[in-house]
Simulated scan of single mutants.
Amino acid sequence: MDLADMLRSRGLRLTAPRQLVLEAVYRLRHATPEQIHAEVAEKAAGVNITTVYRTLELLEELELITHAHLTHGAPTYHAVDEHQHAHLVCRGCGSVQELPSPVLDGLAGELRASRGFRLDIGHVALFGLCDQCGPS
Rank of each mutant, 00 (worst) to 15 (best):
59 L>R: 00
59 L>Q: 02
60 E>A: 14
61 E>K: 13
61 E>L: 09
62 L>H: 02
64 L>T: 08
64 L>A: 10
65 I>F: 03
68 A>N: 01
68 A>M: 10
70 L>F: 12
73 G>N: 09
73 G>C: 05
75 P>K: 06
75 P>S: 04
75 P>M: 08
76 T>Q: 01
77 Y>H: 01
78 H>W: 13
79 A>V: 12
79 A>T: 04
81 D>K: 07
81 D>Q: 07
81 D>I: 05
81 D>L: 09
82 E>Y: 02
83 H>M: 12
84 Q>G: 11
86 A>T: 04
86 A>K: 00
87 H>R: 11
87 H>A: 03
87 H>P: 00
88 L>A: 11
89 V>Y: 00
89 V>C: 03
89 V>S: 00
91 R>F: 02
91 R>W: 10
91 R>D: 11
92 G>M: 13
92 G>N: 09
93 C>L: 14
93 C>H: 10
94 G>L: 06
94 G>N: 04
95 S>E: 13
96 V>P: 00
96 V>F: 02
97 Q>L: 07
97 Q>F: 09
97 Q>S: 12
97 Q>T: 13
97 Q>I: 14
98 E>P: 01
99 L>V: 06
101 S>D: 10
101 S>K: 14
101 S>V: 06
102 P>V: 07
102 P>F: 13
102 P>D: 08
103 V>I: 02
104 L>Y: 13
105 D>L: 15
105 D>R: 09
108 A>G: 08
108 A>Q: 13
109 G>V: 05
110 E>Q: 07
111 L>R: 01
111 L>G: 10
112 R>A: 12
112 R>V: 04
113 A>D: 15
113 A>H: 11
114 S>D: 15
114 S>I: 04
115 R>A: 02
115 R>D: 15
